Simulated assay, not measured.
Amino acid sequence: MKKGLLVAALTICSALSIANAKTIKIGTEATFAPFEFTNEKSEIIGFDIDIIKAIGAEAGFDVEIVNMPFDALVPSVLTSQLEGAIAGVTITEERAQRVNFSDPYYKSGISAVIRKEDASKYPTIDSLKSSRLCAQIGTTGANAAQKISGNFGSYNTVPEAIMELKTKGCEAVLNDRPVNLYFLRTQNDDSVVEIKELLNGEDYGIMVSKKNPELLKQINEGLDKIRKNGKFAEIHKKWFNVEE
């Protein structure tokens, strides 16, 4: 009898815990496939989305994904409109002065996509230094484009930048290599190719307000757990076809 009461009590506690699970608002910019983008049902999906939800499941919070422009993410975290953000955000000293970052969860780097017809003309990233370049606004790809060539254009989304390349409005699109590779793999478009060179390795992190160290701790602990229990490797293979 006592055992039955104990089981019932545990069941009630578990139900209450689920019902009372805190929901946190996490921002993203859903045009950065395969990290975050929308499917045919207008649902926000991607590697980052699966990662933060898996972290939340381990840390005991639910996640509400909020889609907004990339350059609005940091200000929204600073003003507490968001409690955090995950959007393929590179950990930089400048950003770290304004927000806290989780432990790195992904290592990336910048690569360049060019028109296939120009492959011999632009064999290296350095060969682009006198060319007009394109990148998404507010990204490290934009920073790299500015350093390589003073002549560059910023666009709201990656697809807009690629379209500018294809219509010869620029000579290359600078972006995180996983995004470039995903685009090339899924678009079945052989008119553009990647320069086989990687520019500066980068670590992605989850942004959290400096006013919320407890959430940062929960996210880091959740990230550590999904790495150890294999969930991270499972998600990575789902989106990149390799475990990590």
Score class of each variant (00 low, 15 high):
residue 145 A to P: 00
residue 103 D to T: 04
residue 58 E to G: 02
residue 45 I to S: 07
residue 122 Y to G: 03
residue 67 N to F: 05
residue 116 K to C: 02
residue 95 R to V: 02
residue 142 A to H: 09
residue 11 T to A: 15
residue 145 A to V: 02
residue 180 N to F: 05
residue 210 K to T: 01
residue 50 D to M: 06
residue 30 A to Q: 04
residue 167 T to Q: 15
residue 116 K to G: 03
residue 145 A to Y: 03
residue 99 V to W: 12
residue 69 P to A: 15
residue 184 L to Q: 14
residue 75 P to R: 15
residue 178 P to V: 08
residue 222 G to H: 12
residue 71 D to N: 10
residue 166 K to W: 10
residue 243 E to H: 05
residue 16 L to G: 03
residue 197 E to V: 03
residue 150 G to H: 14
residue 76 S to A: 11
residue 210 K to S: 05
residue 201 G to L: 13
residue 231 K to F: 04
residue 180 N to D: 05
residue 41 K to E: 01
residue 33 A to S: 12
residue 114 I to S: 09
residue 195 I to G: 03
residue 108 S to M: 03
residue 92 T to R: 10
residue 160 E to S: 11
residue 116 K to M: 06
residue 68 M to V: 00
residue 170 C to T: 07
residue 145 A to W: 04
residue 32 F to S: 09
residue 4 G to F: 12
residue 224 D to K: 15
residue 141 G to W: 08
residue 107 K to E: 02
residue 120 S to A: 14
residue 137 I to Y: 13
residue 31 T to C: 07
residue 9 A to H: 09
residue 97 Q to M: 06
residue 195 I to S: 01
residue 5 L to M: 13
residue 147 K to D: 01
residue 45 I to F: 07
residue 198 L to A: 08
residue 110 I to D: 00
residue 44 I to L: 11
residue 153 G to Y: 09
residue 38 T to C: 06
residue 154 S to I: 03
residue 101 F to Q: 09
residue 67 N to Q: 09
residue 139 T to A: 14
residue 137 I to V: 05
residue 47 F to L: 08
residue 19 A to V: 02
residue 36 E to T: 04
residue 117 E to W: 05
residue 218 Q to D: 02
residue 161 A to T: 05
residue 228 K to E: 02
residue 94 E to L: 09
residue 211 K to R: 14
residue 46 G to Y: 11
residue 20 N to F: 10
residue 99 V to M: 12
residue 165 L to T: 00
residue 50 D to N: 08
residue 137 I to D: 07
residue 122 Y to W: 13
residue 43 E to V: 01
residue 225 K to C: 01
residue 56 G to Y: 02
residue 77 V to F: 10
residue 112 A to G: 01
residue 85 A to C: 05
residue 113 V to T: 08
residue 42 S to D: 04
residue 122 Y to P: 00
residue 176 D to W: 06
residue 101 F to A: 10
residue 123 P to F: 11
residue 228 K to H: 08
residue 179 V to S: 11
residue 231 K to N: 06
residue 12 I to H: 11
residue 131 S to Q: 14
residue 177 R to F: 10
residue 153 G to E: 06
residue 153 G to V: 06
residue 95 R to K: 15
residue 64 E to M: 10
residue 52 I to C: 07
residue 241 N to W: 04
residue 213 P to F: 14
residue 172 A to C: 07
residue 147 K to Y: 08
residue 50 D to L: 06
residue 160 E to H: 10
residue 94 E to H: 10
residue 1 M to N: 11
residue 137 I to L: 13
residue 50 D to P: 00
residue 190 D to N: 13
residue 186 T to N: 14
residue 222 G to W: 12
residue 4 G to N: 11
residue 140 T to N: 10
residue 87 A to I: 04
residue 66 V to F: 08
residue 235 I to M: 13
residue 114 I to G: 02
residue 179 V to A: 14
residue 120 S to R: 15
residue 214 E to P: 00
residue 84 G to E: 04
residue 61 F to A: 09
residue 24 I to S: 05
residue 151 N to A: 10
residue 24 I to G: 01
residue 40 E to S: 09
residue 146 Q to R: 15
residue 182 Y to I: 03
residue 184 L to I: 12
residue 67 N to H: 08
residue 181 L to M: 12
residue 177 R to C: 03
residue 111 S to R: 01
